[in-house]
Amino acid sequence: MMSGFFDTIGALMMLGGALFLALGGLGLVRMPDIYNRIQAGTKATTLGTLMVLVGAALIMPSWSIKLLLIMLFLMFTNPLSSQVLARAAHRSDAPMTPETKADRLDEDAEDLA
């Protein structure tokens, strides 16, 4: 049922997005502390989901308005939740991995207070 040129390109795009999702999940398991897990788990999966949505828009061109809205909402909400999570981790004194060299937020704490 799917044989056109754009279908193959869209399916390749979706495969790349799914690869980014799987790598984000792998980073979520393999990273040593919570800050690295937030990086791997939020940025990689956001890019993966956006690529999957672009691929779906290439396969089904009549759905592209709804898919564009989903992309817009994801781009609004995911960095928000990521930032709130990182701030909560820093305020609740989550332990860092010993390889961490600098903590700029801790150095700026008295300026912010």
Partner: peptide, 17 residues
């Protein structure tokens, strides 16, 4: 508990996909 919150966030994004 915050690790679980991060995993919850990732699970919702995967559910959208």
């Amino acid at each position: 508990a915050l690790d679980r919150v991060v995993a919850f966030d990732v699970l919702t994004i995967i559910s959208v996909t």
